[in-house]
């Protein structure tokens, strides 16, 4: 296996230029939607809005205002697929279309994907979308073709400020820790790393240095690993399965004379468990009022 690689995104260096988005579109041949016109959302300068089948990178603009709106600040972050170590999409994918590459990144094989959308439901970051033209799931490939050719991903190469750093994951971790210590020393205790350790989905191959809580950037605090919930669900389902089976056995059990030889419910003999060819036709319920219990409520006395 080749060396595990990753992205370290230092959000303090991001200036929101979107060079990474453009490079991603250009290298991967992702078309511009709506004829290249991207209208403003009306509540933010972030006009990409969200990930989509053509937007595999998303530069988030987080506008923060004081109560009187006299002061404003921007947080910017170039977001992308996190290529999680315990990747929920890879876990749940029923076709095996989502694989882990030799670079420890997560990759969707388009020829295998059948568009079931289970990966979309599982991904806590919302990075996967279905292509309306290819009808398969799409997301950042970590420029797998470029990695195979020994080149860095297009976005990292295009980033003019060094906010997106690419390299061997161990080197990036060390670099992030040093940067964090520097920020803390500069009196910025709110600086924190997101996804650098294994607390988030076993570790993220694309991890971040943030200046606020993850929620402020639209990142989940504690995303779930789907396979860990399966056993709890199975147990809960099993409990009710046992209750259903018990209820059915009690409801269908035979009592008293129903089981005696000579009655239609006799259990004796070779016919046990076999279905007779011709079932006895009986009159409708309203025409047979005195057979066994009352049909829909309180039991009525049977025939003497």
């Amino acid at each position: 296996m080749a060396q595990a690689v990753g992205f370290f995104t230092d959000t303090t260096l991001c200036i929101g230029c979107k060079a990474c988005e453009v490079a991603c579109h250009q290298w991967n041949g992702l078309p511009a939607l709506h004829g290249g016109q991207k209208p403003l959302t009306g509540n933010s300068y972030d006009n990409t809005g969200s990930f989509s089948h053509v937007d595999w990178r998303h530069v988030k603009f987080v506008e923060q205002f004081s109560a009187d709106r006299g002061q404003a600040a921007w947080l910017m972050m170039s977001d992308v697929c996190k290529h999680c170590v315990d990747a929920p999409c890879l876990d749940v994918c029923p076709t095996g279309a989502i694989i882990r590459t030799e670079f420890d990144t997560v990759y969707i094989r388009e020829r295998v994907c059948n568009g079931c959308r289970d990966c979309i439901a599982a991904c806590p970051f919302g990075v996967i979308a279905i292509s309306p033209s290819k009808h398969v799931a799409q997301k950042c490939t970590f420029c797998y073709d470029r990695l195979q050719a020994g080149r860095p991903p297009a976005c990292a190469q295009a980033c003019p400020t060094g906010s997106i750093q690419f390299g061997p994951i161990d080197v990036l971790h060390a670099r992030a820790q040093a940067r964090l210590a520097k920020l803390h020393a500069e009196g910025k205790p709110q600086a924190r790393l997101y996804g650098a350790d294994d607390s988030v989905l076993g570790g993220l191959r694309s991890f971040y240095l943030l200046m606020e809580r993850p929620e402020v950037y639209g990142l989940p605090e504690a995303p779930l690993v789907p396979r860990r919930s399966v056993w709890k669900s199975a147990l809960a389902g099993l409990v009710n399965a046992v209750l259903v089976a018990l209820a059915a056995l009690v409801a269908f059990r035979r009592r008293g004379r129903e089981g005696q030889p000579g009655t239609s419910a006799s259990r004796a003999g070779p016919d046990r468990g076999r279905l007779p060819v011709e079932p006895a036709r009986v009159p409708p319920m309203s025409a047979a009022p005195d057979i066994c219990p009352g049909p829909y409520g309180a039991e009525r006395p049977g025939p003497p």
Partner: peptide, 22 residues
């Protein structure tokens, strides 16, 4: 269980959906 094994709001909050559906 399929709905619980996601990161969707509400669905992933409880493992009891399998029991409910059963």
């Amino acid at each position: 269980a399929l709905l619980t094994a996601t990161n969707q709001p509400v669905w992933s909050m409880s493992p009891l959906l399998a029991a409910v559906f059963c």
